[in-house]
Design a protein around this nucleic acid. Sequence first.
RNA 1: GUUCUCGUAGUUCAACGGAUAGAACAAGAGCCUCCUAAGCUCUAGAUGUGGGUUCGAUUCCCGCCGGGAACACCA
Length: 562
Amino acid sequence: MNIRQELAKKIKLDNVTVDELVQSFTIPPSIEMGDFALPCFAFAKAQRRNPNEIASEIASSLVNDELIERAEVVNGYVNIYLNKSTVTDKILSNFAETKELKPLNIGDGKIVCIDFSSVNVAKNPHIGHFSSTVIGACIARLYEKLGFEVKRLNYLGDYGTQFGKLVCAYIKWGNREDVQKRGIEALQELYIRVNAECEKDEALLQECRDTFKKMEEHDPFVMELFEWFKDLSIAEVKKNLFEPLKLSFDDWRGEQYYSQFTDDVLQQLTSSGLAKESQGALVVDLEQYGLGVAVVRQSNGTTLYLTRDIATAINRYGEYAFDVCIYITGVEQKLHFAQLFKILELMGNGWADKLLHLVNGRLRLPDGKLSSRKGNQALAKDIIAVATQKACDIIKERSPDKAFDVDKAQQIGLGALIFSALKSGMSKDSVFVLEDAINFDGQTGPYLMYTHARCASVLRKAPVLTTDISNYGIDSDASWELVGCLNKYQDILLEAYQQKEPSVIARYLIELAGHFNKFYHDNRILSDDEASTKKNLTITRFVKYVLNDGLAILGISSPEEM
RNA sequence: GUUCUCGUAGUUCAACGGAUAGAACAAGAGCCUCCUAAGCUCUAGAUGUGGGUUCGAUUCCCGCCGGGAACACCA
């Protein structure tokens, strides 16, 4: 039941639509001031009347209603007090009838490609990769929840001068046994070293560029080495990141794959006159759009990230015929994607407006930046291990006699890390504080998991009662806020979708769990009073359902026991 | 230099232009013979700075100070 909608329909005001009213409602700062409030200042201005006058008019039209207990006028606001008993009844019946909240189907099977995570060869994923992967995975699940058909694309970073550097470094300093033994770690060391030396040594840099050129020309020796590095990198990222997260992708094709189409792109850009020669390179001038100049072919003839992205987008559209294609990357790529989208549009691709770029803010460590090139990093696998260890310690301390379950410990540790990555706005820069990320108290993943387990525990102990739900007879204040919070779930999913913002869900679940824990503390759920027990169990069941559903979207498991 | 972003308790984060700026962690004080104390109460603590628009500004506009990012051959 959408209470705002219902309230708005009851209010008649000249030149104000129901939608505008729905938007206008606010929640009063304190529950004593009512459940909803309607500020009348804007209406007053339009009608050139006193806000209090309008508010009084509205308030007096709202009496004697099954939803509304009373309405008061305070300083230009109409404060609306709902009829707790009937409203609670309506909300719970609504839940009970559908057994669960009917998922909104706004996607209607539309195809959404989501390009996220984008593994890089020879880069051991750090906490920043973890974070952006978790965010992308969450957005993907949210779209699925809302009825979209989602394609998860991992656009492999497996092409470009940097890999010329890697191969060069291996030939110079690496050895087969070491790479076989230490895998991505050994590769990353080579990568860091070669980057450092290239900064001082122009000749080496040129050698690396030439090695990349050999890759573009499919030189067998170079390619065999590189394919090896690539397989090894993917295997390790899968094992260390995607398997713990239970995440899989529909498409792993990366830059190397799509590079076969760049000639066509360059051809099109040139023949259409979009791209012009400049200082030996081929560029698209986007100055008139405030997007600078975009290089699409370097003066040595090799292609760039942008060139490949153009080819990739065109091929993806051809293959998936997506209705929306979302790219999730760091903010530093803002200009890049603005250029990409504009070029695709200028090339005459009508579907360019289906592309959407979402950004992750930068993640900093308390004492500096994350950088895989400089080796200053908090590795995802290490942090997962630390979080898991902490969960192990706590479980052993809390229940020393029970059989120890390592998998559960990892789920709890991951729950903490995932929640910490999702709880604040994704586009804002943030600081990664390890102690906070692996904290299990307060606004954390384990708090939500614990609350879910607590619901489960109560329900296990519940007696079998008739499922007569015709009348709950609820009038207690204790459950009021909790039920109101439950009722918001669908709106929250919709808001998260509209804002493309996982933290909306994360914060909502904290609010819900908080209300439930208070409810649990203040009320005896299982009591001698059958009617009250029935009501409390109904509420508990729905809290458990919403927690489970919401946590699943975030990518966090919902344990029955903790 | 140009453009874009951000600045809120000791810390990490909230707040469609709305009422008394919310939480959590950390600090201090309480609550387990009672459905899981990974919980629940209570105390203390914040809008960088100067203007402007507005009935009303953390939010919008301008200046300043201070972070971060991008700005043609990296991805």
